[in-house]
Design a binder for these strands. Structure first.
Lengths: 347, 347
DNA sequence: CTGAAAGCGCTAACAC
DNA sequence: GTGTTAGCGCTTTCAG
């Protein structure tokens, strides 16, 4: 049996004090970089030695209670298993770790109830701030409520409709424009958009941009079909619908709301005996990990996932440390990555 | 400006007590499911009303300090962006959340120094236990040291050499056996293994199993080449080496240490003008997300990632709540998933 | 430069 | 059924 029943009592600052023959206040001062100067060099050394010998591990929760912070931030995402989030989280961690913070993670599966519960749970744990990736344009009263609690929040990737939080996102308008222009240059004139849910800021903007950009191009016939979700299944269904409805004036190219939807569209094409890119070109969005290993390798708009996380975390920590935050919006640049799923229009 | 400079003072249990006209101890009792019975029903209702009106959020860190637990577990993984970990984390969360725990996440990139720092940082935050996925067969003194601290640890997927911790993993021997038998049935007689690092328990076992299984099969010529890491790049390099070295007696099938290595092997094949599966069959390991969307769709050994996380978390929480743990090993079953990357041997 | 004392927000004896 | 008291482990005035 490991740890047979009784946990060995953890060593506290008092133990170290006793062992070094000083008062615990002196130990505290000696061990904190900030206050180290206040204590005699050799006393400090004696304290450090005592701490080492006893295997002292400072208790951050006690310290946090006293100092009113937890050095902890809550990260709320829909689903770690959605491939765009891991890179964002890496970016977040990259910023947090050297600054002494750690992330408390919560998945919500996009369900409001779970989201509220997670938010509340993290609030109870006194996280110093939130990074939320579950923004929806329709109301999110609970998240919006953090505003009143004075806990800083930054939105990443998507933003919320109601709450005036800072957000770091990528440039949807330019991404879509690049995709449309790429297809246009390849000779495509009938282009469709497999749009994502209208209550995500990202997919909403992409759909708007698609309409705006195609409307301004002479000779381009644009159509939009709605995908019910940002999944391959929904993408396949939407593509089925497009293929059924269009008859002879079928589009020769489609821009999907994201890579998962694009993946579904490719499956649908295959199921209909059509080839990508020979019969229909497809462009995705996000450049999710392994997008280059699909068949065909996906042409897609790359968004700087890691950078979004990094900047979001940086903005949050700055706000935490400053004690207030400004509702800034930072929009990061995107780039079109041309691979095998787009080709010259055949018809 | 949001939260203009001064954070609104958080409401405490004392505020609620004052507002409800009772003592804070009564508030505590009224609000804790456990002790609710001790208080008069209408007093309790008055307290709840007061809490609601004031927007009281219990402070878990204060409570944790008093109760000596944090309702928090540390999850140490090499890299969230490695596709096998998100499903494991989902499994972990699935168990943690309903039981009131939340996960503190740390990535280590497989570097011992980072790992030690993460471990220490989580220890300072007084996590109630650890789930570690970074096991290595060679020594990990810091992780092993947790043993002495009396903090429960469970290893998931990989295990460590030195520390006697419980572990939940998948059956490597059977997985490799299934892969070899599948290839044998397809007529392959020259089979190679692209082995992973020998200091991971998983890839070590797979390599051992490969040798054992092929040795017991008449007429099978087996060879092993070492991949330097579990990445597509390392897989491609290893495959290059295999292709260069084998000359005319080139293997007709290869079993990779994992899907990433398999992906690299496929790229190498393509670079050499060889086709998969027509010229060489490839089987991966893990059935990582999107393995079915690669080209060709990967035949691979599926390991129950989510289940590994789920069970690992369950074992940990049980140990935390019991106050001690037994060094159990649970080995979960695997299944071979046959897709497009394996075919009948052509030569 | 160091010690004494107070208190962060909470819960658990212990009274009554 | 409810109030009083003490104290979890730490940092920070305030004295000296």
């Amino acid at each position: 049996m490991l740890n047979g029943g009784s946990v060995p009592k953890r060593v506290t600052i008092d133990d170290v004090a006793r062992h070094a023959g000083v008062h615990k206040a002196t130990v505290s001062r000696a061990l904190n970089a900030h206050t180290q100067v206040q204590v005699n060099a050799e006393t400090a050394e004696r304290v450090r030695a005592a701490a080492r010998e006893l295997g002292y591990v400072p208790n951050f929760v006690a310290r946090g209670l006293r100092l009113n912070h937890s050095m902890t931030v809550g990260v709320i995402i829909p689903d770690v298993a959605n491939p765009i989030f891991p890179p964002i989280m890496r970016g977040i961690e990259e910023c947090l770790q050297p600054r002494g913070y750690t992330a408390l993670l919560a998945n919500t599966d996009g369900q409001s109830a779970v989201e509220d519960a997670a938010f509340h749970s993290l609030l109870q744990r006194r996280v110093d701030g939130f990074i939320v990736a579950t923004g929806r344009l329709d109301d999110q009263p609970v998240i919006a409520g953090a505003f009143g609690d004075g806990v800083p929040v930054v939105m990443v990737n998507r933003w919320a409709g109601s709450a005036p939080y800072p957000v770091v996102t990528a440039d949807n308008e330019r991404g879509i424009r690049a995709a449309v222009e790429h297809l246009h240059e390849l000779g495509h004139r009938r282009i469709a958009h497999l749009a994502g849910p209208a209550n995500f800021s990202t997919t909403h903007q992409r759909a708007e941009a698609f309409s705006a950009v195609t409307a301004s191009m002479a000779g381009v016939a644009a159509s939009v079909v709605q995908a019910g979700a940002l999944s391959a299944e929904a993408g396949a269904t939407a593509m089925d619908e497009l293929l059924a409805r269009q008859g002879s004036s079928r589009p020769t190219a489609v821009i999907a709301a994201n890579d998962l939807v694009a993946l579904g569209a490719i499956r649908s094409l295959r199921a209909h005996g059509l080839r990508c890119p020979e019969d229909v070109s497809i462009v995705g969005y996000n450049d999710m990990p392994f997008a280059a290993d699909f068949w065909p390798a996906l042409t897609t708009v790359r968004i700087p996932l890691r950078e979004i996380g990094l900047q979001g975390a940086r903005m949050l920590l700055d706000a935490i440390e400053a004690g207030h935050q400004e509702p800034a919006t930072v929009t990061l640049p995107v780039t079109l990555v041309v691979r095998g799923s787009t080709a010259i229009a055949s018809s």
